[in-house]
């Protein structure tokens, strides 16, 4: 984590809130298990079950192989998407940038659909291939965004419109694949909506490693991110190679985002909402904003997934629906503000 002289009480409060949320979320679900049982089940460890008398094997299985990996996957995905949003916003100097809005997430989903359509990945594919094709799709999209939007010199709207256009194009192509191969309709649909229902310990492991690889460079580049928010000539004057920093940051966050999409589908607006809310609390300095965005992203995603899991009783909602309902209005507010401020 970031070196800090003191631990902010606000950070402690947020961490406590996250812990409380995790415990509550673990007890909620169609097969409701009370919090008192949860403590017993958790302390029994992952292998126990048969010998215990305070809970059933089914309850143990539900917590250890279903709810726990799922909650932690949501937590890591929340961290990745919110940090990616924060980085994109600073890189492009655009308050509305986020992996979903810019089409990076769709790019990853497109990579997966294309590979599935071509038969590169399928039913018995190893757990590694999906993230790889997702990254290829996401990196391609990021590259196109970078070229088409002309870096950051153009207006914020140009960048957004480029993202919107790419989103349209990619989703049209994915729909085309669905029509050409009806058998994959269900799975491609799910990738476009986002869900944590397929979470497992193995995927969580890969996702966590990818998240650490994606976020680690940012820890060392918080000062450069601050400088990037100034104009490019000042950055040069301060000895920052804008191009190098931008490519490094974009590359690593796109990688983490792509792996998240590979395992959880496209989940929008978390990367947009969380950094904005956290900026109100911490100010724009990235050294402080980064850890807060991480905690905030975790809280938001675990909360959204819990709603998705429990709102409909025995069936569940796609989590992307919840985050879009919460995030899209904020996007509109930001858009109106930007239009008002720019000449």
């Amino acid at each position: 984590m970031v070196k800090k002289r003191f631990i902010s009480p606000l950070a402690v409060t947020l961490l406590a809130l996250l812990l409380l949320l995790l415990l509550t979320a673990m007890s909620l679900g169609p097969a409701g298990i009370p919090v008192s049982q949860i403590i017993h089940i958790l302390s029994a460890g992952p292998q126990a079950g048969d010998s215990a008398t305070t809970f059933s094997t089914a309850q143990h299985r539900i917590i250890w192989s279903l709810r726990l990996p799922r909650l932690l996957t949501a937590l890591v995905a929340g961290i990745v998407l919110s940090v990616s949003g924060m980085v994109y916003q600073s890189l492009f100097r655009n308050p509305m940038a986020d992996p979903y809005v810019l089409g990076i997430s769709s790019g990853a989903a497109f990579g997966i659909s294309l590979a599935a359509f071509l038969g590169i990945i399928g039913g018995a594919t190893g757990i590694w291939q999906v993230p790889l094709v997702a990254f290829a799709g996401a990196a391609g999209t990021a590259f196109v965004i970078l070229i088409l939007s002309g870096g950051v010199r153009r207006s914020p709207t140009t960048l957004l419109l480029t993202g919107v256009a790419l989103n349209f194009l990619l989703s049209a192509l994915m729909t085309l694949f669905m029509y050409l191969n009806r058998a994959q309709l269900q799975s491609i649909m799910q990738w476009t909506l986002g869900s944590f229902s397929s979470a497992s310990w193995a995927k969580l492991g890969i996702l966590t490693v990818a998240a650490m690889i994606g976020i680690a460079p940012i820890l060392f580049l918080t000062r450069e991110l601050d400088i990037l928010l100034l104009d490019e000539s000042s950055a040069h004057a301060l000895g920052v190679s804008v191009r190098t920093v931008r490519i490094i940051l974009l590359g690593f966050t796109t990688f983490a985002t792509a792996v998240t999409v590979a395992f959880c589908g496209t989940i929008g607006f978390v990367g947009l909402m969380v950094p904005h809310i956290m900026r109100l609390i911490t100010g724009p300095q990235h050294r402080r904003l980064l850890p807060f965005s991480m905690i905030g992203g975790a809280i938001m995603m675990v909360g959204a997934d819990t709603i998705a899991r429990t709102a409909l009783g025995s069936s569940e909602l796609p989590v992307g629906v919840i985050t879009a309902i919460a995030g899209a209005p904020l996007f509109i507010v930001l858009l109106v503000n930007t239009r008002r401020n720019s000449p």
Partner: peptide, 19 residues
Amino acid sequence: IASDAVNWSFQLELLHAYD
């Protein structure tokens, strides 16, 4: 076991709870 559920969708943990 899914007689109370609707619209074809079911959650994995219910399948384990009913076993």
